[in-house]
């Protein structure tokens, strides 16, 4: 069995939005401890990992199931959540559906078809990073918007103790520099200078679910995947994005 009650449907909507930006389908691995999902995007450039511990739910009861979901359909349903709605997720094993129930002034129920998406057994690779930066999401997203004006990819750099977001187009350049004492920076754990280049659209998708005051943990090295991690509504979201390299 699986039944979970979430006090704010809107918070869960953010989690689904974050995943559906990058993935078409997902397999929620539910167990008595909570919900986990790990998947790569179709081009294997990005990895999404989510962990929603049972403590994040108002009520939670489950044994082990793999629940395969079409994210586009789930996202559309979650878009129908109203501000004060509670969300109930419930597996109907007989009909092979996931019931998605909004409880507000009325009780509205959707029965979502399950897909045969097997769990990937994918792990977030245990990469050691020389640099770890905790930064306000709003500040990082703003820097990406600046970069977006000049090119479709962006370099994330650590240089001389500063965190730099740099883009160079055929004609124009943009640069945002964060020093350690910036109000936007919570902490910088700097080991060495580094530089990796990334597709901007993916970075924007990965950070879309974060509110501007949320804290992003960004791990970077040289020509290494970037790891971006944040929490929303008691859930942990981790993204990995492969770099672009000089060819």
């Amino acid at each position: 069995m699986f039944k979970a009650v979430i006090s704010e449907a809107k918070e869960f909507k953010k989690i689904i939005d974050a995943a559906s930006n990058l993935l078409d389908e997902i397999c929620f691995e539910v167990s008595e401890d909570g919900i986990k999902a790990r998947a790569m995007d179709p081009s294997h450039v990005a990895l999404v990992s989510m962990d929603i511990p049972k403590e994040a739910f108002e009520e939670y009861e489950a044994d082990v199931h793999d629940i395969g979901i079409d994210l586009e359909a789930f996202k559309k349903i979650m878009n129908r959540a109203k501000a004060k709605d509670k969300l109930i997720l419930e597996l109907d094993e007989e009909k092979n559906k996931l019931n998605v129930i909004f409880k507000g002034t009325a009780r509205r129920k959707f029965a979502l078809a399950l897909y045969d998406v097997s769990s990937s057994n994918l792990q977030v690779p245990d990469i050691e990073y020389p640099n770890e930066i905790l930064i306000k999401a709003g500040a990082f997203v703003d820097a990406l918007k600046d970069a977006d004006l000049v090119n479709d990819h962006v370099a994330l750099k650590v240089d001389d103790g500063k965190f730099i977001i740099y883009a160079k187009g055929d004609l124009n350049e943009s640069e945002t520099i964060f020093e350690e004492d910036s109000e936007d920076i919570i902490s910088m754990n700097i080991g060495e200078n580094a530089r990796s280049t990334f597709n901007l659209e993916y970075l924007k998708d990965m950070t879309k679910a974060a509110s501007s005051d949320d804290i992003l943990k960004i791990c970077i090295g040289t020509d290494m995947p970037v790891k971006i991690e944040y929490d929303i509504g008691g859930a942990n979201l981790t993204f990995l994005l492969a770099p672009r390299i000089e060819s």
Binding site: V45, A46, P125, N199, P225, A242, P243, I245, E246, S247
Partner: peptide, 12 residues
């Protein structure tokens, strides 16, 4: 010119 790597290159 840059080229996009996939994550497989980093899974070992």
């Amino acid at each position: 010119k840059t080229k996009q790597l996939t994550l497989e290159a980093f899974f070992k």
